[in-house]
Amino acid sequence: MTDLGEFLRVRRAALQPADVGLRGYGARRVPGLRREELAMLAGVSATYYARLEQGLSANASEAVLDALARALELDADERAHLLTLARTPARRRSRPRPDTIRSGMLRLIESMPDTPAVVLGRRSEVLGWNALGHRLVAGHLPFASPHRPAERPNMTRLLFLDAHTRELYQRWDDEAQRAVSSLRVLAGRSPDDDELTQLVGELTVQSPEFARLWARHPVAVCVSGTKQLRHPEVGDLAVAFEVLTPPDDPGSRVLFYSAEPATPSAAALDLLRCGSVAGLPAQTLA
């Protein structure tokens, strides 16, 4: 089954007839809408829809995809993901070169010592961070690790497989949902990325929680929000995040963190900032 077919199947299974104004008849061997029910709602033939879900039909029109999105009650991010899956041709896989951070970008975030900043690559790997960003999200790791491709931290891998990172998030379940939703969007845009496929395979095998979330096929573009942290150095704090994407490098993202002024969270971030200015622990600089 193709990625498109899997997405359609999972979302079809998540809807019950009553959810879309249909009356269910008879016992159902599998949960959710039947193929013919979804096809009727979308105004396409059951045979055509079945072939689309099975990966036997390509080049579905935008009108058909829009009709399916409405029938499945997809939101804007999910509809965009559906169109991406339908429009992205299969390509021969190749091993891409490791992403790199531009020296100008690194200087930029280093010139902002009062604002935690982290630069991520296409697969959520850390390409660089400033001192405060490092101390906020991964102070237990070597500061220089992003500059060594073989040792680069990956924020999604850390979230599911690293005990320190897991303990950092007060609402770990929300953070995990957000991470998998973002990873699904990235995977839809880069179906030929071997390293991304390997990351998903590794997490599926090593984390039952990741495997369950991935199977649900959640989709969301997360560009801002709030993270509730329980930091090992400064205690509980809430930080807002904003994600900026360089226009000439849509694969990378820059995360900036901030705290509401005159709040306990701002005081905690100030305390962490003082520690960053004073100097990081010796083991983090290794």
Score class of each variant (00 low, 15 high):
S276N: 05
A220V: 00
Q16R: 14
R157E: 02
Y25W: 15
L65G: 06
A268R: 11
D193W: 03
G32L: 02
D270A: 09
M105T: 09
R97Q: 13
A63P: 11
V185F: 08
L8V: 01
E175M: 10
D75V: 08
L72Y: 08
E260L: 04
G251P: 14
E62I: 09
A80D: 00
A278P: 11
R29C: 09
G279L: 00
R87N: 11
W172H: 00
Y257W: 01
V10N: 08
Q170Y: 05
D66G: 15
Q198H: 09
T47V: 10
A266C: 06
P250C: 03
S190D: 07
Y257A: 00
E242G: 15
R93M: 10
T100I: 12
E151A: 04
T84K: 07
V185H: 02
G55R: 09
A131N: 04
R157F: 04
L106E: 06
S45N: 02
D248P: 12
L244H: 09
R91V: 05
R157S: 02
A262E: 11
G21V: 12
G26A: 08
Y257S: 01
L213I: 06
V44C: 15
L159S: 02
P89M: 02
V10I: 11
E6C: 13
A46P: 11
S45C: 05
A80Y: 02
G128A: 07
G225R: 04
Q198P: 06
V20G: 03
R102S: 06
E110N: 14
A259F: 03
G133C: 04
H231L: 02
L127T: 11
Q54P: 03
E53M: 09
N130C: 01
M40F: 12
L83V: 00
